[in-house]
C-alpha cells in the first residue's frame, strides 16, 4: 500500500494531539484497504483550524472547505455519489461553533458520513480563544476574565440530535482511536467521534486525560446510561456510546430512477410538451 503521508511540511506543534489523530486515521485507512476498500472511494473534507491541516498531510482526495461548513460539504459529496465514503474533520470551534447547524442536521438526517471532532477545547490556530467546548473559567485572549459560558458536551449533544453512531477517543490512545474510527467509517449512517486532543500551546491536557480517562467496558445498553457515562464528572469515558441502525438519508431522498443522458433529456422534454 502506498504512503498516506503527503510531502507537505508538517507544522503542527511538537506534541500536538493532532499527530495521534493523524496516525489513527492512517491506521484506519490501512485496515480498510486491507479489507478490500479502494482508496479512491474514500474522500475527506475539513474545516479551518489546526485540525484542517490534516487535509494537506493526508494524501487522499477531498475538499478543504470553509470554516464550519465541511460537514455540509461532506453531505453534498455523499448525496452526489453514495458510493464514496466521506470522512469530515472538524474542530470544536468549527463543527460546534460556526457550523453547529450542519453538525446537528447531519445527525438528524442520519446522513451516511463520518465526523471526527478534534476537541482541543480552544481555538488553537487563532491563538487560543475560548471554544464552544471550553470549560467555565477558561482564560484566553477573548475571555481574559474567564469564560462565562458552560461548554457543550459533544457526545450527549450529538446523541440528542440523532446520531446513530457516537463515540469518544483520545489522541494519545492511537490503537483504540484507530479501532473506533474504523467502526465509525464502516457504520451505515451518521457517525460521530469526539477525539480528546491536548493542545500543547494553549491547553495542555495530557496529564488530565492520562489520569482521568477510562475505557467503556461495553457499549451502553440505552441512551440514559450512555448519557450518564458521557457526562461523568470525574472520568472521561472512551469508547462507543451508541451504535444503532436506522434508515439513511440518501437512500430515502435520492431518486431511484436512472439518470438520463443529454439526448434522453431532450427527447423527454419534447414528449413532455
Amino acid at each position: 500500500m502506498r504512503s498516506l503521508i503527503s510531502k507537505k511540511e508538517n507544522t503542527w506543534c511538537v506534541g500536538c494531539g493532532n499527530f495521534g489523530i493523524f496516525s489513527a486515521v492512517r491506521k484506519c485507512l490501512q485496515k480498510m484497504v486491507e479489507e478490500g476498500h479502494a482508496l479512491e472511494d474514500i474522500v475527506m473534507t475539513s474545516g479551518i483550524g489546526c485540525h484542517g491541516k490534516i487535509f494537506d498531510y493526508l494524501d487522499i482526495s477531498g475538499l478543504y472547505g470553509l470554516h464550519g461548513r465541511a460537514v455540509a460539504t461532506a453531505q453534498g459529496i455523499k448525496l452526489a455519489n453514495p458510493k464514496l465514503r466521506v470522512i469530515s474533520f472538524g474542530g470544536d470551534g468549527d463543527s460546534l461553533g460556526e457550523g453547529l447547524e450542519h453538525t446537528l442536521f447531519a445527525a438528524k438526517r442520519n446522513m451516511d458520513v463520518t465526523l471526527i471532532l478534534h476537541n482541543n477545547g480552544n481555538y488553537g490556530l487563532t491563538t487560543g480563544q475560548a471554544s464552544p467546548l471550553s470549560n467555565l473559567g477558561y482564560k484566553g485572549l477573548s475571555t481574559p476574565q474567564g469564560n462565562v459560558e458552560k461548554p457543550f458536551n459533544a457526545v450527549t449533544l450529538l446523541m440528542e440530535a440523532g446520531a446513530t453512531f457516537v463515540a469518544r477517543g483520545y489522541s494519545a490512545k492511537i490503537d483504540h482511536l484507530a479501532d473506533i474510527l474504523h467502526k465509525a467509517v464502516m457504520h451505515k449512517g451518521f457517525s460521530f467521534v469526539e477525539v480528546l486532543q491536548p493542545c500543547v500551546s494553549y491547553l495542555n491536557t495530557y496529564q488530565l486525560f492520562n489520569q482521568h480517562t477510562a475505557l467503556l467496558p461495553e457499549t451502553p445498553a440505552d441512551t440514559e446510561t450512555a448519557r450518564k457515562l458521557a457526562r461523568d464528572p470525574q472520568t472521561y469515558y472512551l469508547g462507543v456510546f451508541r451504535e444503532e441502525q436506522h434508515r439513511v438519508y440518501h437512500e430515502e431522498v435520492l431518486s431511484s430512477t436512472a439518470v438520463m443522458n443529454p439526448s434522453q433529456r431532450k427527447q423527454y422534454l419534447k414528449d413532455f410538451q
Partner: peptide, 13 residues
C-alpha cells in the same frame, strides 16, 4: 449556507 456548501461538495463528486 448548507445548500451552497453541499452543492459545491456535489460538484466535487
Amino acid at each position: 449556507l448548507a445548500a451552497i456548501n453541499m452543492a459545491v461538495g456535489a460538484c466535487f463528486a
